[in-house]
Write a protein that binds this DNA or RNA. Sequence first.
DNA 1: TGGGCTATAGTTAGGAC
DNA 2: AGTCCTAACTATAGCCC
Lengths: 167, 167
Amino acid sequence: MVVINNINKNVDHKKTKITKGSQKIEIKKLEDKNSLQVTFSKRRSGLFNKAMELSVLCGVEVGIVVFSPNGKMFVIGCWWDESIDKMRLEELEEYVKGLMKLRLTVASRISEMMMKNHCLMPLVAATMVAIATGLDVLPINNNGFVVDGNSNSVCGFDDRFTQHLRM
Amino acid sequence: MVVINNINKNVDHKKTKITKGSQKIEIKKLEDKNSLQVTFSKRRSGLFNKAMELSVLCGVEVGIVVFSPNGKMFVIGCWWDESIDKMRLEELEEYVKGLMKLRLTVASRISEMMMKNHCLMPLVAATMVAIATGLDVLPINNNGFVVDGNSNSVCGFDDRFTQHLRM
DNA sequence: TGGGCTATAGTTAGGAC
DNA sequence: AGTCCTAACTATAGCCC
């Protein structure tokens, strides 16, 4: 049998409460510069953690780019949770590999969609897809990729920089 | 004064419990195909919501690309929460604009970093930056962007497709 | 696949350091 | 900017539909 004095409990409640705990906030741009920075830092880290969990649990690729209020870039993906500022050149190479792989996957999905929907893309839209994917010609090969049919180059660069990135 | 019968409370507790509630899980690849799909769907939506909140609260750009276990692409960013499959061509144009803007921001940040750190990039690394950003030449202009010094084109496409996307 | 539900796990606001 | 703290908020596992 448990007996609780309700009034005492409430009084005690107020006296012993150490912090306010998490308060509900409205989702609109924070006014205070300082709390905006703090919130950004905490939530960015929370977001990246969620992305990592999703990626591991479901075995899927997740890529995120976030620009901080101060313009610092934070990226995760195949290159996981490294800020550009901290990257050494060797790490930059890994980052770019990841970005290339992601881009080729994007190109692949767009191509697949086009084929699946028997979608005849107007030249302008096709051009934009090329810009989006960073590839400068549009024939679709047997693997469903958008590739450079003339030179096997990507954005005009020699294949030796990119061939190991093709999936 | 509140009186609670502890034993009855516990018994009642067990009897009236309707679900198991959320259970702790290990962060490792889910074996069961069905629960993997369900988890992917729920967590992807949670991730995108978190990204939206971060973006609004802190007024920052956030871009995410996720590939589902079935290979479907989900993207948010300037183009918010649309799957490629559902895009109509006009929407694809908006998507590509967002992607271009994001890419130019990436190019800008990399350029800024290079200048700030007085970093003399070796040719290979510089080439990879170009590949990463989708721009095919590397002189840095007054605005800190990596631009095509020869023709103001991006990936060889006429400026009329891209000039309105420059920041 | 996407909604519902409940109980619990996990995240985070606000504070101090 | 990162760490710790607590209380309260939100997300979500496991279930059903």
